Simulated assay, not measured.
Amino acid sequence: MRALRSTTVAAVAVAATLTAVSGCAQKSDAKGADGKGVIEVTATDTGCEVSATSFPAGHVQFSVRNKGSKVTEVYVYAPGDRIVTERENIGPGTKAEITAEIKAGTYEVACKPGMKGDGIRQKVTASGKGAPAARDPRLDAAVAAYRKYVQEQADQTLPAARKFADAVKAGDVAAAQRTYALSRVGWERTEPVAESFGDIDPKVDVRADGLEDGQKWTGWHRLEKSLWEEKKISEDDKKLAAQLITDLEDWQKRVGTAEITPTSMANGAKELLDEVATGKVTGEEERYSHTDLLDFQANVEGAQHAYELLKPVAAKNDPALAKELDKQFAAIRAQLDKHRDSESADGFASYDTVGKDARKELSDGVNALAEPLSKLAAAVATGK
């Protein structure tokens, strides 16, 4: 998980007055679904202006602008802080477009200046029947196949995670180090689905600088710190290893209930690239173990799997986009291949040995893929 998360929703065409309590403003006459208009959101360092607090359910387009001085992010939350959609890394003065399938109900739009905290929130309501029932049957097949994929990844993660946890509980630092990165692959491939539940990711994948006030640090990265920085396993670490398995078993049981739509698959693929940009390329994600490249590969694999399932419809609606995505996925995989190490436990070079120029090449590759990938949701939203 990113220590700091970033996503925002964009520019309001008309001025609105910020409410004293929430720091959010609204304009009630904007439209916003299925071609009827766009929900404009302007994020600043102290406010989150939403151009409409009610709109038709269905495929909703959010147009996002960050007018603040800090990098920000935007979330759409369902009750219980279940993440419906998000967009990260919206820099000062930049824009982003988010297309999401929103069912009838009440939600909150949250802007997070500085990518931390609960965000500045605005309650919104989607009403009506939502997206038309008749859509390309290939999209229904894609959702079914992706649901099977995320369950398989959770099922495959548990044995690998238990092997890691057993090594920790046995006090075997070397064995725990060898199995640490491999235990995370399935999680990294499907993390946006896990994050959609709201409460699992902070337990298993948070980093020290992502902790909220009063939150106990648990999960993989706390154990990573013990194994590589402290180079010893405490009795508390053994308890944390057991708790990690309990939390991952919870994820495994619940992942089949996740709400998955064609647009959430497309947005999730983009979120995985954001994960790479904010954590793996920078070296922040695995700051003690330096196993970032295996995480990087898993994120790319997960994003590409979602894209390949959606590709038949995306290629029909936007052939140029599909051609560009094919090209950029191949390019980023080729760049990763340059850093393979057959003698490493996880198959990749330690990221602290990857030089500045090579990191920039990887970063440029991620950006080249992320830009067209951000358009995938819009391409499949029209697949009716």
Rank of each mutant, 00 (worst) to 15 (best):
S6M: 12
T17V: 13
C24W: 10
D34Y: 10
G35T: 07
E40P: 10
S51G: 13
A57H: 06
H59E: 13
H59T: 13
K67V: 11
G68E: 05
V71M: 12
T72L: 06
Y77K: 00
P92A: 12
G93K: 09
T99E: 08
A104Q: 06
G105R: 02
A110E: 01
G114S: 12
G119R: 00
R121P: 05
Q122C: 14
A131H: 07
P132S: 11
R138D: 08
D155R: 12
Q156T: 09
Q156F: 03
D166R: 06
A170N: 02
V173T: 07
R184S: 01
P192E: 03
V193R: 01
G198F: 00
D199H: 13
V206M: 13
R207E: 10
G210H: 08
E212W: 14
Q215E: 14
K216F: 15
K225L: 10
S226F: 07
W228F: 15
L244C: 02
E249F: 01
Q252Y: 11
K253D: 14
V255A: 01
T261P: 04
K270H: 10
G279S: 04
T282R: 14
T282S: 15
G283R: 10
T291L: 09
D292S: 13
A314E: 05
E324S: 12
A330C: 06
K338L: 11
S342D: 14
A345P: 10
D346F: 05
G347V: 04
G355Y: 09
L362G: 02
S363I: 07
D364L: 05
E371Q: 15
L373D: 01
K375H: 11
A378C: 07
G383Q: 07
K384P: 13
